[in-house]
Design a protein around this nucleic acid. Structure first.
Lengths: 319, 319
DNA sequence: TTCATGGATAAGCTCTCTTCATGCATGCAG
DNA sequence: CTGCATGCATGAAGAGAGCTTATCCATGAA
């Protein structure tokens, strides 16, 4: 015997409406079904209970004693369910869980998030960061920002910006060796995190092939922002993404000696589960984010479920 | 938009079980469905809420914050529903509503009901009476006893006893005219309710065709039991159903001068809605009642829904 | 490694539930 | 008092939700 059908749930919902409204027809209207269906469901419930719940009088129905016993509890139960669903739905819109790389979080989101809050005052944002790429199935995250190729099955991704990199240092440090005139000049200075493949990539692009980076003392700081702090403090030259430091550049704390930027083909993406693409808060954040990156145009392309994201939309500045 | 599907009820039930048991598979077992179906229902609910409710970890699932919000309320609501259904089901078995003709109620049921109570101590009997035949759709009645032909659409009827009738009077009254020797002797006495068709029927059967009943003063008392009281009090001769007065006969308060009994083809029946034939309390009462009327055999035949009752089972005493 | 566990996905079928059409009883208006 | 409107029941037929079977995948344990 099926435990499941311990009691006919739908029939109870119909009963609740019928008892409340005192009419099968009205109940049908409220529930968006015909009077016939209501009649059927009530009978179903009566069969299940083994006892009539309504007396069918000519132009009205009336609860039996049994029906009167049932009605308040059932009503209360459905109130609870309605309430539970409503609160969850509201809450579902109320807090947005964002995951980001630490760098993007501290260098970009931290400074821009305020404008999103202004636009969506009812949404509370909670942010988590990690270098690893999270699995939406295992972590409670609505939306993530990550770098990569943009191809993640089951997820939709929109490109935000390309991850360019170029050496940066404090103007004071540059002046200490009489200015940086050629890429090779950089080698006179301490290289922050010389093991970073970005350095090799950039020097190659700059035509410097004999830079002996491997022999230099390693000093991986982990997140790019730490390296930036170190560079600002004059501790050396770092290879950074300029977009992340507009303020430091404007204030003269960081200096980009060459226009040449490296790019390893990765970009930043905002990603979310394709199945949830219609969630208002997700849509809201995505649209805001894309708007921030291309004020004029709002190009957006979806990945089809389960395969191959698409991209396009030029990064704000190409090399 | 369908109001009805405000929220997916079945999905909520499944969610409740899954959240409680911490496993889709176990929930499926409890609900008597496959893991696949559980997965489907949960996804349905998540779509509806717009937010995941479980994190799918390798060998376990875990509620998200949203799921945790939902679980207690939903659990409570289903407890309420379960409780409501249980109490109604119990109550459904706990009280039995019987309707009867006043005569049968006072003359037969009143004296025998005790044995039913003994047999079914958990069932409370509430009895209503009226001369009219009640409509099961309009009155809250589980089971009725009525006289008639036994043919009522939608109802099942079992014959209890034939409604025989024969003149009865107090022995004292009989003696006051030197005893009752022939049917015609009765005409020397006051006839209680001479307009009752039973009298004409009986006199005709007795071969007395010139009894001028119409001219006698009418005195309809309504229920047969009142007429019996009057007869016992010596106020005249009444036409009664002897089975109803075994005690009065045994105690010498009523006297049946002739074996001849009239019968107009009606009998007493116990009837109930065929659809409810499996209700334990109804079955219990019916079986008890039929047992009382034929201790040896328990013949019982159902009427098919909507048509033509059947009968059989000989009344305890035929004419 | 291999096995066992637990969940997701795909496709197809079943049976519940719904609608449509109709009937019946009653109350109300003219 | 007749005719109309209201409200529920019944029966037949169709749609589609929801279930099952079959299969796959990932992980933790032996």
């Amino acid at each position: 015997m099926k435990m499941s059908k311990q009691f006919p749930l739908n029939a109870l919902r119909v009963f609740e409406a019928a008892a409340r409204l005192g009419s099968f027809t009205k109940a049908g209207d409220e529930l968006g079904m015909t009077q016939t269906a209501v009649s059927y469901q009530i009978k179903l419930l009566e069969d299940n209970v083994g006892e009539p719940l309504f007396l069918r009088r000519p132009r009205q129905i009336q609860l039996t004693r049994t029906g009167e016993m049932l009605e308040p509890k059932v009503g209360e139960a459905f109130d609870l369910l309605r309430d539970a669903m409503a609160s969850v739905r509201n809450d579902a819109e109320a807090t947005l869980l964002i995951h980001s790389t630490p760098t993007f979080a501290s260098q970009w989101l931290a400074r821009h998030l305020g404008s999103f809050q202004l636009k969506h005052p009812s949404v509370a944002v909670r942010m988590t960061t990690s270098e690893t790429i999270i699995d939406f199935n295992r972590e409670a995250v609505d939306l993530a920002i990550r770098s990569g190729t943009g191809e993640w099955p089951g997820l939709t991704s929109h490109p935000l910006m390309s991850v360019d990199f170029t050496p940066m240092l404090s103007p004071q440090l540059a002046e200490s060796i009489g200015g940086i005139h050629t890429p090779r000049d950089l080698l006179k200075l301490r290289i922050i995190d010389p093991g970073d493949p970005w350095w090799a990539h950039w020097f190659a692009a700059a035509g410097v092939h004999d830079a002996d980076l491997a022999s230099r003392p390693a000093s991986r700081l982990g997140a790019q922002s730490f390296e930036a702090r170190a560079a600002i403090a004059g501790q050396g030259v770092a290879i950074l993404t300029p977009e992340f430091y507009p303020d430091d550049i404007a204030l003269g704390r960081l200096y980009q000696p060459f226009d040449l930027r490296g790019n390893d083909g990765h970009q930043y993406w905002v990603v979310y589960q394709t199945a949830r693409r219609h969630s208002p808060k997700i849509k809201g954040f995505r649209d805001w984010l894309l708007g921030e990156f291309s004020p004029s145009e709002g190009t957006t392309i979806n990945a089809d479920r389960g395969h191959l994201a698409t991209h396009l939309s030029r990064p704000r500045e190409a090399t």
